[in-house]
């Protein structure tokens, strides 16, 4: 063991701008990914509650299947399989798609708990008032179900952020992709990978604290 590794400040300083560029890509992927996950997750949650078993049952299985298999394999699958069917999208979009679909299975659970938290009387009142299914969902149920689940969605935002580096393995130059590149270019890997880790800590610890505060604040409301 030799714990006297000489940290190369000059090298660290030199690769930092590339890593920050990568971090920006990582943040963008997280942003688009969570938006997709929030939309798709809501669709999953609503389909799963369908009274038609031919809809609710397959939805439940698809959610279970996607959620219990590795994101990395799903990512590779989309990246290598889609072009076979003539669908050509760039690596970044493929990555966002994989992140969005994978995390939609988690967000759908979050929505489900929110929807189940809406008192039964609200459904009954909507029926009594002869509101259409569409109006019941969009004007009565969802406006009550969604605000309470926002902090839980925030937790998945942070979780997703930490999985974006997988995109580096389908040629996206996110923060880890830049780190890998610096490592192979210079044969010095300690600085890039340490900086990547530090950048993650710098972003994700404050965001977790923020989400926790949001949770506390929303819990205090009646």
């Amino acid at each position: 063991m030799d714990l006297t590794y000489e940290w190369d400040w000059e090298y660290a300083w030199e690769i930092l701008p590339d890593l920050l560029d990568g971090l920006w890509i990582t943040i963008q992927a997280t942003f688009f990914g969570i938006i997709l996950a929030m939309i798709l997750g809501l669709a999953f949650a609503i389909l799963r509650r369908s009274e038609v078993r031919a809809i609710s049952w397959p939805t439940a299985w698809v959610i279970e299947f996607i959620r219990s298999t590795p994101l990395l394999v799903q990512l590779f699958m989309l990246f290598y399989v889609l072009p076979h069917y003539g669908i050509r999208i760039d690596a970044f979009t493929t990555g966002v798609l994989a992140l969005g679909i994978h995390y939609a299975t988690y967000t759908s659970e979050v929505y489900r708990s929110g929807i189940e938290g809406v008192p039964r009387g609200q459904w009954e009142a909507s029926t009594a008032l002869n509101l259409s299914t569409m109006t019941t969902w969009s004007r009565v149920i969802l406006p009550q179900a969604i605000p309470v689940v926002i902090p839980s969605l925030g937790n998945y935002l942070v979780a997703m952020f930490k999985e974006v580096p997988l995109l580096a393995f389908i040629t996206v130059f996110d923060v880890l992709g830049e780190g890998k590149a610096a490592c192979t270019r210079n044969f010095q890997c300690v600085e890039p990978y340490t900086l990547v880790g530090v950048l993650f800590l710098i972003v994700s610890i404050p965001s977790s604290i923020l989400v926790r505060q949001l949770e506390v604040r929303l819990a205090r409301q009646p």
Binding site: D2, E163, P165, V190, Y193, V196, G197, F200, S208
Partner: peptide, 25 residues
């Protein structure tokens, strides 16, 4: 807890596999 939850598993793996050898491990 904060360290491992705050960084990404893949980054930890790469650090342990590719950076640790520079410390002789």
């Amino acid at each position: 807890v904060d360290f491992f939850r705050g960084t990404s598993a893949i980054v930890q793996l790469f650090w342990i596999f590719f950076a640790l050898p520079f410390f002789g491990i």
